[in-house]
Write a protein that binds this DNA or RNA. Sequence first.
DNA 1: ACCAGTTATAGTCACTTTGACCAGAACTAA
DNA 2: TTAGTTCTGGTCAAAGTGACTATAACTGGT
Lengths: 236, 236
Amino acid sequence: MYASSANVSERLAAPPALAISTVIFALRPSRSSGRPTLWMPLVRRIREPFKGQWALPGGPLSHTESLQDAASRNLRETTGLAPSYLEQLYAFGGLHRSPTQRVVSIVYWALVQPTEAALAAESENVKWFRADRLGELAFDHNAIVEYALGRLRSKVAYSSVAYHLLGEYFTLAQLREVYEAVLDRELDPANFRRQVKATPEIQETDKYLQGGKHRPPRLYRFTGRPGLDQDNRSTP
Amino acid sequence: MYASSANVSERLAAPPALAISTVIFALRPSRSSGRPTLWMPLVRRIREPFKGQWALPGGPLSHTESLQDAASRNLRETTGLAPSYLEQLYAFGGLHRSPTQRVVSIVYWALVQPTEAALAAESENVKWFRADRLGELAFDHNAIVEYALGRLRSKVAYSSVAYHLLGEYFTLAQLREVYEAVLDRELDPANFRRQVKATPEIQETDKYLQGGKHRPPRLYRFTGRPGLDQDNRSTP
DNA sequence: ACCAGTTATAGTCACTTTGACCAGAACTAA
DNA sequence: TTAGTTCTGGTCAAAGTGACTATAACTGGT
C-alpha cells in the first residue's frame, strides 16, 4: 500500500488516499421471530490497522473505472453479489479516520434481492450480520452504517427503493414487512394496501401465492425503473 | 501540479487527484425585474485545461483539514465569503472529467446571506453570474451546477434551508420571494403565510419593516439550528 | 382631509390525504 | 362443518392543501 512503507514525512507529503466502500443491505429472516430483518455482509481485516476486526467491504479506486463501477466491482469481488440498487452515500474525509494515514472514503450503499443474498458466499473472512446488532467495527464504520441506515429509512419513506429488497413477485404483506423492518414500526395492513395501490408503479398480477396456511394473497410486481442509480446517469 | 510535469505512464500510475469544489448560492435582485434571483460566484481558470473559462471555486485538499474545512477555506479564499449553510453535495469521479488527469471532485454547496454577498470581492478573475444564465463552464461544472440546483430545490421544498439565504429579520413576502426564486413558480401569499406560521422554527417579532410604499409588514426571524451542516456533525 | 392604490393578513370552502377502525371474503387445519 | 387466520374492501373523522374572498393598514396624490 501507499503509506505502509513510508516514513512520517513522506506520508504527510503524499496525497490523501482515496478508497471506495459499500454498505450492503439485504433481507433475511430473523432467527428468533422469522420475520424479515436487515442484514449486511462484512469482511474481516487481514492487516493492520484493526486487524481481525470486521469492516465494510472496500478497496482502492482503479484508474479505469468510475466510482460507481468501483463500488460495484468491490461488492462482487468480496461478496459475490450483484446489487439491484446502488447509490452514492457520502464522502467521509475526517482527519483521523485511520491511525496510519489520511484516507478519504467515498461510500456507496446497495440493496440486494433475497435470492441473491441467499447464495452469497460466506467464509472465514466474509460474514453476515444483523444491521442492528453489529459489534464494534473497524475505523469509523459504525458511524457510516448508522448514516446509511438513516438514508435507507428516509428513502424508503419517500421513494420506492423498498422494492429492490424483494424479488420480482411479492405480496403486499411481504412488502409491508419490508417497510416494517426498515422503519422499525408496525403499519396498518389495510392503510398500507391503500397507499401502495395508489402508486402507479405497482402492477397487480393474476398470480397468487399458494402454500400458505390461509387465504392466498395476490402477487404484485414493481414496474418502476431498474433501480440501478438514476442519480449517476446525470452525475458522472 | 501533480500530473503536469509527468509523462503518460507516470500519470497512469499516480493515484487519482482529489479536489474540493463548492457551488455557492446567494440572492441578488434581478437587473430586469428587481426581484431576488439566484446568483453564484465563479472563478476564471488561469491555466490549462480550460484556461480562460469560468469554473467553480475549488482546489486541492490539504492534509490538515477536513473536507468541510477545505470547502469553507476555499470559499473564503476565492470569494471572501463566509457561508451560512454548507453541505456536501456529491463526489464526482467520472473517468474523463479532466482531459489531462483523473480527478475526483468532492463538491459542496453553500448558501450565503445577502449582506455577505453584497460585499463579496469581485475582480478580473472572480465574477457573479445568474444561476440560470451561466455560459459554458470548464470541465463538467455545468452538470454539477444543475445537480446542485436540483438539490437546493428539493431541500427548500422539504426542509428549512431557505432562511439561510436571508438575513436575521425578514418579512413573509421576502421569504416567499425566496421560495419563488428557487422553485421558479408563484406561490399564493395567503397559503404560504399559513404554512410558514405553522412551523415552530419561525418567530414573530414586534418589529415592522418601515419605508415601504404600503402597509408595513411584520418582521420574523428563524430560530432553527445555525445552518452550518448538521449532517457533518455525525459524519466526520 | 379624503380617496385611490397596494400590500398585509385573516378567513372560508371544497377537495385530498391519513390514521383508526370495522366487516366480509377466502383460504387452511382439525 | 367449524374455528382460526389473513386478505381485502370499506367507512369515518381529523388534518392538510389549493383556490379564493374580504378586510386591515399603510402611502401618495389631490
